[in-house]
Each structure stands twice: as structure tokens, then as C-alpha cells.
């Protein structure tokens, strides 16, 4: 018989995963009996654990993504479709509606503009629209600025 791991999600799905290591890796490596006088294999460099929902990494990046997700939550409609892994993975970019992307880009853009003294120069990098990684927000600003002017 092999070990099974069951994950209980909101649908209470049972997902037996025979032979799965990572749910119990820390037990194999960190619990169990040791005999002091014996050698133990070095664990230097081991990448210890990856838990599925890689949540709550305390960083500015994470906070901003949570804020973005929070802002686009529509509480009146079904809002259960936003998953935390989606938030923290690269998948977020695909699921964000263009309107909301623009909104996020605008607010960042406004702040940046205030910070640098309000030059409204615009360039024409249309491809910036596809770049939503936080470190690439500067190009997104110009794109958003341009679109907002077009709508005005």
C-alpha cells in the first residue's frame, strides 16, 4: 500500500496522490530517529519545500498583486474565480481585463508622474500593454496615458 495525500478544497475533492513526496518531505528530512554518533547526509543546498499555494510572501510585489486582485473583485457577481496561486503565478496577467489593467497602470502612472515632476511625454510602445510584470510598469504608463487621452 502506498501513502496517499488528500487535499480538501472547497469542493471537498479527494485527490489521492500515491507516492507523493513533497507533502511530507519535511518529515522525512526533519523528523524520524537519528543516532547522534552516526554520520548524517548533508542537506546543504537542498531546496526543502514547495507547497502548492505559495501564499503570503511578505513583499511589496505580493502586496500590490493582492491589492490589484482585491480592487477587481466584484462582490455582487461571482467572485470566487480568483485563486491565490493565480495571483502569485504569472497567470494573473492573462486573467486581468484590459480595463482593469489600464486602471492599475493609470494609478501607478499618476504616482510616477507626480514623483518625476509631471512630464506628459508619450511614446508609442503599444506592446507595453502586454507587459504587466511590476518591474515593467514604466512602459505601461505611457501606453495607458495614450489610451486615456484617446478616450477623453
Amino acid at each position: 500500500m502506498t501513502m496517499t495525500t488528500t487535499t480538501y478544497s472547497d469542493e471537498v475533492v479527494c485527490r489521492p496522490r500515491a507516492g507523493t513526496l513533497y507533502d511530507v518531505l519535511e518529515l522525512i528530512l526533519d523528523r524520524g530517529m537519528v543516532i547522534d554518533v552516526f554520520v548524517r547526509v548533508s542537506l546543504v543546498g537542498i531546496e526543502i519545500l514547495k507547497i502548492d499555494a505559495r501564499i503570503v510572501v511578505a513583499s511589496v510585489d505580493t502586496y500590490l498583486r493582492f491589492a490589484e486582485a482585491c480592487n477587481r473583485l466584484d462582490l455582487e457577481r461571482d467572485s470566487g474565480s480568483t485563486t491565490i496561486p493565480e495571483l502569485l503565478g504569472g497567470g494573473v496577467a492573462k486573467s486581468v481585463g484590459k480595463r482593469k489593467v489600464k486602471r492599475a497602470a493609470e494609478s501607478v502612472g499618476d504616482t510616477v508622474r507626480k514623483a518625476v515632476g509631471g512630464s506628459d511625454d508619450e511614446d508609442t510602445e503599444e506592446e507595453a500593454e502586454e507587459q504587466e510584470q511590476p518591474r515593467r510598469r514604466a512602459p505601461a504608463r505611457s501606453s495607458a496615458t495614450k489610451r486615456r487621452r484617446a478616450e477623453a
Binding site: 501564499i55 505580493t62 500590490l64 491589492a67 490589484e68 482585491c70 480592487n71
Partner: peptide, 25 residues
């Protein structure tokens, strides 16, 4: 969240995001 919507900006988003992360955990 309301604050971040009415007065959007980096600082408001950061406050909201940090509060969300802390509360979730």
C-alpha cells in the same frame, strides 16, 4: 479597498495588499 478605489495610488495599494496578505494568513 474603498480608500484605494477613491484615492488610487501606490501607497493605498500597498496598505491594502499588506492588510490582505496578513489577514489571509
Amino acid at each position: 479597498r474603498e480608500d484605494a478605489r477613491h484615492r488610487p495610488g501606490y501607497a493605498a495599494d500597498l496598505r491594502l495588499g499588506e492588510a490582505v496578505a496578513t489577514a489571509l494568513s
